[in-house]
Amino acid sequence: MQSMYFTEEHQLFRNSLKDFLQKEVVPHIDKWEETGTIERFIWKKFGDMGYFGLATPEEDGGLGLDLFYTIIFLEELQKINSGGFAAAMWAHAYLAMTHLNKEADSFLKEKYLRPSVNGDKIGCLCISEPFGGSDVAAMRTTAVKQGGHYVLNGSKTFITNGVYADYMIVAAKTSPELGNKGISIFAVDRNSEGVTANKLNKLGWRASDTAELAFDNVKIPLENLMGDENMGFSYIMEHFSLERLVMGVNAHARSEHVLDYALNYMSEREAFGKSINKFQALRHRVVDLHADIDMCKEYNYSVAYRLDKGQYVVKEATISKLKSTKVADEVAYECLQFLGGYGYIEDYPMARNFRDSRLGPIGGGTSEILREIISKIIIDKKEYRPATV
Score class of each variant (00 low, 15 high):
45 K>A: 11
245 L>E: 01
39 E>G: 04
38 I>H: 05
120 D>H: 14
200 L>V: 06
196 T>E: 13
154 G>F: 02
193 E>H: 13
239 H>R: 09
253 A>F: 05
146 Q>L: 10
65 L>A: 01
291 A>C: 06
216 D>M: 08
327 V>D: 07
105 D>G: 10
10 H>N: 10
258 V>P: 00
375 S>C: 10
140 R>F: 10
79 K>W: 08
214 A>N: 10
260 D>M: 11
254 R>W: 08
152 L>K: 01
380 D>R: 05
34 E>I: 07
171 A>Y: 02
343 G>K: 00
170 V>E: 00
352 R>P: 01
326 K>C: 03
228 D>H: 11
212 E>S: 13
87 A>F: 06
361 P>N: 04
157 T>M: 10
25 V>K: 07
358 R>E: 04
215 F>G: 02
196 T>I: 08
128 S>F: 06
349 P>Q: 05
159 I>H: 00
251 A>F: 06
337 Q>C: 11
312 Y>S: 05
51 Y>I: 03
19 D>L: 13
130 P>K: 08
71 I>H: 06
13 F>H: 01
261 Y>E: 14
343 G>P: 01
250 N>A: 14
184 S>P: 08
106 S>K: 11
29 I>F: 05
199 K>G: 00
376 K>A: 09
281 A>W: 04
124 C>G: 12
123 G>L: 03
231 M>R: 10
144 V>Q: 14
372 E>W: 11
88 A>L: 03
126 C>F: 03
191 N>I: 06
214 A>L: 06
350 M>A: 13
179 G>A: 03
250 N>K: 03
6 F>Q: 05
84 G>R: 05
74 L>P: 04
95 L>V: 14
272 F>H: 12
168 M>K: 13
196 T>S: 15
86 A>P: 11
243 E>S: 12
214 A>I: 09
116 S>Y: 03
314 V>P: 00
68 F>V: 01
371 R>Q: 12
215 F>Y: 12
338 F>K: 04
224 N>A: 04
6 F>H: 10
25 V>N: 02
97 M>C: 14
50 G>H: 07
191 N>F: 07
261 Y>M: 14
107 F>K: 12
129 E>N: 07
3 S>V: 07
293 I>C: 04
190 R>K: 15
288 D>Q: 12
118 N>V: 05
209 D>I: 02
124 C>T: 15
149 H>N: 11
279 F>S: 08
298 E>P: 00
234 S>V: 04
257 H>T: 10
317 A>N: 00
353 N>Q: 12
19 D>V: 11
380 D>K: 06
311 Q>G: 02
217 N>A: 15
286 V>I: 14
147 G>C: 04
337 Q>G: 06
105 D>P: 02
31 K>L: 15
63 L>R: 12
37 T>E: 14
13 F>I: 00
118 N>A: 15
270 E>F: 15
89 M>P: 08
82 S>A: 04
9 E>N: 10
310 G>M: 02
